[in-house]
Amino acid sequence: MIILRGFALIIAACVAAMSPARAQDATTLKKEMVGQWELSTTERSKTCVVTLKGDAAGHGLKLELEPACKTALPFTKDIVAWSVKGLDIVRLQDATGEAVIDFTEVEAGIFEGLRQGEGVYILQDLAAARSMAKSMDQMIGDWAMVRGNGQPICGLTLTNTEAGPDNFQVFLKPKCDPVIAQFNPTQWRLERGQIILMSKAGETWQFEADDNAQWRRVPDTADPLIMLRQ
């Protein structure tokens, strides 16, 4: 989807060149970005509050980083300003205007950026990020995995014990269905509204919340797996 969107924007840019519409897009994004944002690793194990402002500052616009940023995310020590590049790139930049990290919007209000050799970072509205943190706290504890007919086939516990970058430990209870036991998840994370279970072999299962406050494995099947909070 991101590739298609980017391709469409390139075509539009070629047609419109430096048209007022393109300028308006950048101007609108600048206005929308003014405010408080959370810069974090993908699962918020390390976070930093960034306040983007609309005032000019050297090669870009002013921003403020909370004091804890440099400890949580060392690369932020080089960030002194921000700007919008092209149609939809939000740049956090150094004193010369060069990118420290570039972000593009991957979902409404959620921006994603990559630093080579380090990984992916997320920039999202501070209030929304804190709401997500509360949601993650609600995930911790005991769960039952059941079939679509309600038959329990496994118990598991999601913990907040770190098990690597942005992941946390998960433990299976005894007497699990062979399918679950063979998968044998050891880590989990909450990512973009999904519970992700991961095995030692690197296999992943994704679960999404449905309208009945259940978490169903996706893609859905005729005999679905469902996670229920205990």
Rank of each mutant, 00 (worst) to 15 (best):
M18A: 13
A21M: 09
Q36K: 11
D223A: 14
C14G: 07
D55W: 01
G35L: 10
R229P: 01
Q93V: 06
R192T: 04
M145V: 06
L4D: 12
D88I: 00
A127W: 02
C176V: 10
R192Y: 08
N167L: 09
L65G: 02
V90L: 08
V50A: 00
E38A: 06
P178S: 13
R229W: 01
K53R: 14
I110D: 02
F111T: 04
I122P: 01
D94T: 05
F171E: 09
G109W: 05
W143Q: 04
I153E: 03
I10N: 09
V84G: 01
G141T: 11
L9T: 08
L190T: 03
K200G: 10
G119F: 03
G109C: 02
D223N: 14
T27Q: 15
N149P: 02
Q214K: 14
K46G: 12
K173Y: 08
P224A: 07
T161E: 14
S131C: 00
E105V: 03
S135F: 03
F7M: 09
D137H: 09
F183W: 00
V146K: 14
A23W: 10
V100T: 11
Y121K: 09
T104E: 13
P219T: 04
A181V: 08
L63H: 08
Q93K: 12
G164Y: 07
P74F: 07
